[in-house]
Amino acid sequence: MTTLEIKGLRVGVETDSGMTEILKGVDLTVNSNETHAIMGPNGSGKSTLAYSIAGHPKYTILGGSVTLDGVDILEMSVDERARAGLFLAMQYPVEVPGVSVANFLRTAATAIRGEAPKLREWVGEMKAAMTSLNIDPAFGERSVNEGFSGGEKKRHEILQLELLKPKIAILDETDSGLDIDALRIVSEGVNRVKETSDVGILLITHYTRILRYIKPDFVHVFAKGRIVEEGGPELAERLEEKGYADYVNA
């Protein structure tokens, strides 16, 4: 049983006019085997929350805490956080020229698992994961994310989720840019990880569509840098009908 606990988290970015506070006190707890959905308007700070947890150097922690099973992760480097069991499927995955997908995945799996997976088993494992996500094995030879379509990048993120088996996974708009079939395939991938592990999921999305495949236990409304309402799956349906006007103008 793992707990990611975010308390009073305040985060800023350096801008031309000084430090701008984006997260203004976020409180959220994600346990193993729970799925939390976060929905909120553009620019409200959802990706900022995701990146801050992962440790992106652009963001400055101004206050609050983030712990994983009581251990302060804000003190850890980016790679240490990942090895501690955190995973972020990015809204905009980065292209890394010249680093092949196959080499990248094996290096990452070695780092996360603490030892190099046996080559033959690894090849089988990677092939199976690629096949189930409908990724052409030829992608193994391509550079990480380079020239991938938007949907291919997202599937590549979920491929990593399946292979790296984190304790807590943050999925930042993994559903954006996916066609109907890809959305189903990606959702099935996430559900496979849920079924075969105790992963806790924080799923950031704009659409209820993905929530029909990946059932959330909790829905949080995010606006102006904090969580402004919490509820069950029915909250998502209500947002779909009424939008964020109540929260943004509040």
């Binding site: 440790g55 150097p57 480097s77 956080r81 890394v96 996360i112």
Partner: peptide, 8 residues
């Protein structure tokens, strides 16, 4: 950042 966020 991308590579390190995967534990490398």
């Amino acid at each position: 950042f991308y590579l390190m966020s995967r534990g490398i």
